[in-house]
Design a binder for these strands. Structure first.
Lengths: 337, 337
DNA sequence: AGCTCGCCTGAAAGCGGTTTCAGAGCCTCG
DNA sequence: CGAGGCTCTGAAACCGCTTTCAGGCGAGCT
């Protein structure tokens, strides 16, 4: 930006104003259309801009306007296919409103999140927290800064913050119902990251599941990756479960991979059900029984919530999108062992 | 940022300096450690910062320092699993150097890219162009702006720009060799986005393949998604190909899905080979024969290239990382039809 | 003791825009 | 024909922070 050695000097608004023989104020007015300007001057400005290849400096604009023209998104893990799809939708909405998107990743380290969010607040008009894992207290603290913020896949009771999430409990209830109907009595749940709010929501479904006659045991596997699922299989096999529910599809796939290695038939000997419906794509669908979530819509709605927040005052109730059970090939009736 | 109605006023450096009874310059020096300051004043500043919850405004810092502390990345498609993994690595490198990451997506629309890059240049110290599809002329134009920039998965002959890419041609050559060895004589290639440089590089391998006795016909499918692969299957079946090479794994998976629907056995009746090795994860590996690319390393190296460019002068040759053939279940000997 | 030097601090000048404010010109109306 | 009002333009203030610059003060030296 500065005249760095070896780099050509930046072209500023005053270069343009000189070239066009008008004041900087006029250049600004022309470029932003904020006031009526003599058509002749308008032309001169445009010519100068084109000739010099002038581009306004975003930092200076941000400073002067008191707005960065940027939104920030924090995600736990970019490699988790869940988030890029959300990002895509958010980015589209942001762009449609003339805003850029900053992305930060905590790499599933809740301790990092606080700092990252603080950083985002220093350079973004609004922040979208996607599946934040940080402790409630920290979250409440951040929300209290009265910086525009939207909560995604997490709801904080009592917090006056626009929130959007999936109905995790409902989704998991469908899964339990499906299994109960197939005749399962005992299932194991491979829990996700300990700090995951969505995980707690899923677990809440298990009490209701008892009414179906399905007993679900929680097996901590402590992660959201396939590796975690892979590693947790041993614990599952020790139990009497005839079905495995996974925190998400990745965990489920990891478990299936391990089961295959061990020669345990899926779903003949053990049913495995995922969560999220992360298929590689929409056509070559996987064969995993799972509950799907409209990630695209989720991202879009979240983006719109944030935009609304940036222009209006807040006035929203938490929004819960429904999940849809996708019965495919990895779930079936239990076998007596 | 400005005192917006309903929002608490921003805390600025002068608030801190007032509270700490020092000058703004001193606050700045303390916070940045740019000069020695009386320990007593240091404490006063820190106290004031903590008490007021002061966070420096990134735009103002950027303006004053002549550096945004941000890098920008342009990707064609966030939903393509290839890129998030790259982004993850890039983001990690950027963060390690104290920089944030801005992400833009062209949604596979080459016409959008130019504008997006211009926008990135207005707010980022350096820009990483990942698989840019734009015409060579536009690209050269942008590179000529002498804004720090790194080219990823595209090499422009003669351009003095740090570039990093995969050895597409080499990868595809391995694929051809594999097929030839299996006994295939005719293969069809499902080409990707027309503007993809990587696509041209892949195609270059087909001439050499003729030496193996393998004839590859290019079937335009015009996309990088599974939908494109799905749709292109009809054309393949009309040909005499006994094997299908795909632009990437997504295309391959789409094709396989369609073949499955049509009752065409893979690999018994038709071998299908992907490209990129985009598995959902590292454990539950797919069964697709493909060539893998070290996306993580690729992203890391690209990020480091950019960082180097931001501090030093340019001095690099294009870097090509090798691909590795992964023979799995979707390729086999041809059957006479 | 007086002088020089060096260290630390605050005032002020940018960074590159936007926006307020005041003035110049022109038109209209009395 | 002159006063009042509008419209358009440029000068200048300001956004919040960094950094230069100059000055004050204490230490060290002669």
């Amino acid at each position: 930006m500065q005249n760095r050695p070896g780099r050509s000097p930046r072209i500023t608004i005053s270069d343009v104003s000189t070239a066009a023989k008008v004041s900087a104020a006029t250049v600004s007015r022309v470029l932003n259309g904020t006031a009526k300007v003599d058509p002749q001057l308008v032309d001169r400005v445009h010519d100068a801009v084109r000739e010099l290849g002038y581009r306004p400096n975003a930092a200076a604009q941000g400073l002067a306007r008191g707005e960065w023209g940027t939104i920030g998104v924090l995600v736990p893990d970019l490699a988790n296919p869940y988030f890029p799809e959300v990002l895509k939708a958010v980015s589209a909405v942001a762009r449609a409103h003339g805003r850029r998107m900053m992305v930060m990743e905590s790499d599933e380290d809740p301790a990092l999140e606080y700092e990252l969010v603080e950083d985002l607040m220093r350079c973004c008009d609004g922040v979208l927290l996607a599946s934040p894992r940080m402790p409630r207290a920290e979250l409440v603290d951040l929300l209290g800064r009265d910086h525009p913020m939207v909560l995604f896949n997490r709801v904080v009771a009592g917090a006056r913050v626009p929130s959007i999430s999936v109905d995790f409990t409902g989704g998991m209830t469908q899964v339990c119902g499906h299994l109960a109907q197939l005749g399962h009595r005992r299932a194991a749940y491979l829990g996700g990251p300990p700090a995951s709010w969505g995980n707690d929501e899923r677990v809440r479904a298990f009490e209701a599941a008892r009414a179906f006659g399905l007993e679900v045991t929680v097996v901590e596997c402590g992660g959201s990756t396939s590796q975690a699922g892979y590693d947790a299989v041993a614990a599952v096999l020790e139990s009497e479960a005839t079905a495995v529910l996974a925190y998400n599809d990745l965990v489920a796939l990891g478990a299936i991979a391990r089961l295959r290695e061990l020669g345990v038939g899926v779903p003949d000997e053990l049913s495995v059900i995922g969560f999220d419906d992360i298929s590689l794509d929409r056509v070559a669908h996987s064969d995993l029984t799972t509950v799907s979530v409209p990630r695209d819509e989720l991202g879009r709605r979240a983006g719109e919530m944030l935009e609304r927040l940036l222009v209006n005052e807040y006035s929203e109730e938490p929004l819960y999108l429904p999940m849809t059970l996708q019965v495919r090939d990895t779930s079936g009736p239990p076998t007596v062992r």
